[in-house]
Amino acid sequence: MNILEIEEVTVRFGGHTAINNMSLEVPVGTITGLIGPNGAGKTTLFNVISGLLPPSQGEVYFDGHKITTIPPYRRAQIGLGRTFQRLELFTSLTVKDNIRVAAEIRNQWSLGKNNDSRLGLGGLTIQEEVEKAIELTGLAGIADRQVTEIPTGQARLVELARALTLRPKLLMLDEPASGQDETETERFGNLLRTLTLNGIAILLVEHDMGLVMTVCDLVHVLDFGEIISIGTPEEIQTNKAVLDAYLGSES
């Protein structure tokens, strides 16, 4: 079963086609990698899925519903979480408050909806949920620091923790490992694996090929706004089209 289906999406900026008639599926409980050279359309695709950018053509289906035209906040409410390549932290708040406000925002919109998505009623309180997210992402040591003071690698974890408080069905991570060192990246990979065990599907845009190759179940390679190849990490690493896209064609 697929949690996300993209059908023939096209995005044009003026005369430039950023995404060309692209279709893509993300199965439940898997990590799907999205790689490709700069300007291939990865972040644009993310913006289309999360609703920050309407596609020129095509449809987006999430969990069986067509979500092409609904606003970003409604998409988040039905279980679509994401992080940003260029950090979008709440810079005036501490690490903990960044996560806490996310939990509080969720409590806001789950008001009046089914109660099991609401914190503090039977299940975890906001406090507990925040602590759980902090523990999971390993941010306990810096929970009270201002987010402007922590290194980028950890700031990316804050964004992840924040997205996790949504209890998303699909998590979209935009270059989560950039700014992390090797050990951090390795730990991060393990964390992603743990998350999928809980049934979360992950769509991962990443330049750190080490991470992509170790955690992804399936990798999609984008170039010029099109998917040029799909395969397991091993297949991708030896695919000639992929090498050409990255290194330029051998002439």
Binding site: E182, D208, M209, G210, V212, M213, I236, V242, Y246, L247
Partner: peptide, 9 residues
């Protein structure tokens, strides 16, 4: 090159 681009540490 290949290793640097396609993910060998």
């Amino acid at each position: 090159l290949t290793s640097a681009y396609l993910g060998i540490k």
